[in-house]
Amino acid sequence: MHGTLFVSGNSGLHRLHPLTKLALTFLFLVFAATLPNLLWLLAAFVILLVPMSAWGGLLRPFLRSCLVVITPFVISLSIIQGFFTPGETPLFHLAGFVLTGEGLLAGLTVASRILMALGGALLLMLSTRPDMLMLALTRSGLPGSLAYVVLTSIQIFPRFQERAQVILEAQQARGLEIKVNIFKRLRLLVPLMGPLVLSSIVDVEERAMALEARAFSRPGRKTSLLALADSPGQHLARWGLLLLMLALIGWSIWRAISS
């Protein structure tokens, strides 16, 4: 689907019910918050998330997206935590500051927690069509209008980009020079953003009318063109995942109290 992370495919991961995948995402989020140290976090990532992405045929986009997002965190967290966490093992001196082993470890641990949570979300987004996810959520009680808001905000960006390109062309055709220095750039904002914002506002009204013409706010249960495949096994698995999450949270609270 254009403008989302979704990569189409027909793997087992793709075919899982969206709620099952959502439950997995939440489980990985709980992992990110509760696993005790760097080793556990990395192990969970390598043993669970990486094979799952491979199962979905998504190994490359998964690892690439992870790398792109996590690298700046690794660098900034290592520097900040590394230099500002007091510790016994100095590794490196710079202008009076000391990089400690403990600090570096703390920085990397936080980064790996982010990686864990990010990886879980990525698996969901890469393998699930957003409209399928929203359908699954509305079936289980999410208000339809809320689902619509989420879906349109996902889909609006590519539309925005396309329209911005057309506007750029139209204004250049009216003699607007866009390759100008940075100070003159500011003056380009009005002719370029103006039509974008104004036409989007006009759009909203038309969209609202089109939706109502198709009985958007009609009360009662709606049917959908999309078919969601579920199975008793998955239903059970979701409850299992929920229990596992609760257990992990309980375990980590117990650890915090007992230490």
Binding site: R163, V166, I167, A170, Q171, A173, R174, V190, P191, M193, G194, P195, L198, S199, V202
Partner: peptide, 12 residues
């Protein structure tokens, strides 16, 4: 150049 859709250029 006159484009098909005027809303893609009007801003003033």
């Amino acid at each position: 150049f006159l484009f098909q859709n005027p809303d893609e250029q009007l801003f003033e």
